[in-house]
Each structure stands twice: as structure tokens, then as C-alpha cells.
Design a protein around this nucleic acid. Structure first.
Lengths: 176, 176
DNA sequence: CCGTACTTTCACGTAAACGGTAATGTTGCG
DNA sequence: CGCAACATTACCGTTTACGTGAAAGTACGG
């Protein structure tokens, strides 16, 4: 028997079928992390596995893997701290509260508010990432400027070499 | 009297004029770091101030500030470790060796080789940064997909609300 | 049912990147 | 020259993000 976590049963079971659940080593390998890291992220409230086996093994479904992959990207590629990631992703406790609130009502306007909050969060994530991309782009531009300067100097030197080989030595300036 | 560091005198004095040198607190403020961090980066061999005062105060010129700003960006925006940054930037010891080698010869082909090495390094920096930008862009795309899904759901709910208000209740599906 | 590979929690260890403080020296304005 | 503001080295402390066992339990093919 599997114990799925409360209020996550619906689409999680749907997404994973009745099986398709992975153990921690498997998901860790898939996202390029260690089981220890995945457990640590859970400890910080970044995610919660879809289910536990009878023997309390963590069992992850595809949405878990997606979230883990996103977390990994936010750390390795965007360089966010786990605390920042928790803010960005909304920690698991808040997610479950939100999910529960969504299902606790059938009032479309209440549900709409919840969805809009979630959308706002995604928009915030996107803004943060875009900001990082912009700054990285500026850094690339700076590096390209430096590269261009090197290439100009190199071209000057090459010209000097040609001149020396083909005619009288003309001593130009050669900064660095 | 100022003691400029050997083999850095030429363009550093030129860039800074005879003065224009800043103390550590000033440069730290300019790049948004603490003096402690700047000293730590120096300790790891990431840079060396242009000069020291008679009383051994670190004195930085504009090229130092640029380099420090780049280091800060590589840490905060690109999320590189200081060790990785040392690789990327070529640590100060290697820089000085390269600089010295450049000036130790007047042979254009030898100089050309040095410049090409430096250019290759810049190109490597650019490739690394571009890789990061690509992965971040993929993450933005993923976030936008999630956002779009939310917005679709929200649109569905809004339609449901209109229908409920304007006519008979039509019960559609409403996943989350 | 047995062994092996995997998993659990708990706990201690550690590398990186500084923060903070102490003891001391330097700058530079009035 | 006197003093406030800043600097230096040295060193210990802290936080983050795990690594690395230990001790015990679980999953499962044969």
C-alpha cells in the first residue's frame, strides 16, 4: 500500500498512474544531484515527495522531478541560494495551504484569486530570471569589448611583422 | 611616495593619472561589496591593487575597479565560485607572468602568441556566460509555460463565472 | 526466507565565503 | 601635533550546503 500525501492525491496519482513512482536515487540521478541534496532540499521545505512507501521510502512522481530539476537549475545556473529559491518557489507548506484552499471552495472568484496569486509568483520568477539574463548579457558585452581590443592589438602586431619582413622597420606604438 | 607594483606601472599610472587611486572602502562601495570580501578575493589571487601607500594602504585604479566589478558579477549574477572565477579570469600571478613575458620581448610573433592566448581566454569566458544565458532562457521558457497554464485555467474560471451570472449553471471540469 | 542493494533518520564533519573583533598603524584636516 | 576616521594583519566564528558514516529498517529476486 502507498500512502499518498493529503490533498495532493488527485493529479499526482493521475500523473504517475498507479505506479511510475521513483525512489530517491533514481530521481537524484535524473536531475544530476545526490540523494543527500534532495533530502536536504526537502528538509528546507522546498518540496515534498508525492508519496511514501509502507516502509517510508520517498516516492517521487514526474511533477516532483520537474520541480527538482527547476530547483537544481535555480541553484547551478542562476546561482540562487536555497533560501532565495524557497521564496521564489513558495515553500511546500504554503503550496499545500494554497492547494487546499483551492479545493476547499467551489466559488470561482475565490479560486480565481488563488490562480492569480500563483500567476503573479510565476511572473516574479520570470522577472528575476530575466534580470539575471540581462546582467549576464552585459557581462558578455564587456568581455567582447575586451576581446575586440586584444584582436586589434594582435592585428597591429601582425601588420608590424609584415612590414618588418617586407620593408624597413617602422616602429609603431605597442601598448598592451 | 607610492609604491606601484612592478610591471604594472605603465598603463596603470596612465589610467589613474598620478592620482585617482581609491582606497578599499571606496572601491568596495562602488562595486557593492565589503572591504573584507575584496581582501579575501585578493588573498585567493583574484586581483592585486595597483599600488600601496607608504603606510601599506591598498590603492586601486580604474582597471582594478573594473576587474572587481566583473568578479562581483561572476559571483552574484553568474553564480560562479571564486575558484571557478580564478580559472576564468586567470589568477593575478599568471597575469603578471604573462604581462612580464609580453614586455620581456620585442619579438612581434612572441607577443602575438601572448595576445592570442589572452583572446582565447576571453572567448572561453564568453562561451561560459552564453551557456548560462541559454540555460536561464530555457528556465524562463519553462516558467512561461507554467504561467500560460495558470492563465488558461483562470480564463476558464472567468468564463464559468460569466455563465453562472448570465444563465444556467454549466458545470465544466476544473483541474488545477 | 535470505541476502544484497537500497533506504531511513541522526549525527558529526567540512569546504567556501565571508563576518567580526582585536591590536596596531596611517591619513589628513584643523 | 592631535585626533577622528580609516587602514593593516591575524585570527576565530558563522552560515550555507551539503558529505560521510552509523545503526537500523525495507524491497525484492532467487
Amino acid at each position: 500500500m502507498l500512502r499518498y500525501y493529503a490533498n495532493m492525491t488527485d493529479e499526482k496519482t493521475a500523473a504517475a498512474g498507479v505506479a511510475g513512482l521513483l525512489r530517491i536515487q533514481e530521481v537524484a540521478a535524473q536531475i544530476g544531484a545526490t540523494p543527500r541534496s534532495v533530502r536536504y532540499w526537502e528538509e528546507l521545505g522546498l518540496l515534498r515527495p508525492a508519496a511514501r512507501s509502507d516502509g517510508d521510502y520517498r516516492l517521487y512522481d514526474q511533477t516532483d522531478v520537474d520541480r527538482l530539476r527547476f530547483i537544481k537549475g535555480l541553484r547551478d545556473d542562476a546561482g540562487f541560494s536555497l533560501a532565495e529559491i524557497a521564496q521564489l518557489l513558495e515553500d511546500e507548506a504554503a503550496r499545500e495551504r494554497s492547494h487546499e484552499a483551492y479545493h476547499a471552495t467551489t466559488d470561482p472568484s475565490a479560486r480565481l484569486r488563488i490562480l492569480r496569486d500563483r500567476a503573479a509568483r510565476y511572473e516574479h520568477q520570470i522577472r528575476m530570471l530575466r534580470g539575471k539574463i540581462e546582467r549576464l548579457t552585459a557581462m558578455v558585452d564587456a568581455a567582447e569589448t575586451r576581446l575586440a581590443r586584444q584582436n586589434e592589438l594582435a592585428a597591429g602586431l601582425a601588420a608590424e611583422m609584415d612590414a618588418t619582413a617586407g620593408g624597413p622597420t617602422n616602429n609603431e606604438e605597442h601598448p598592451e
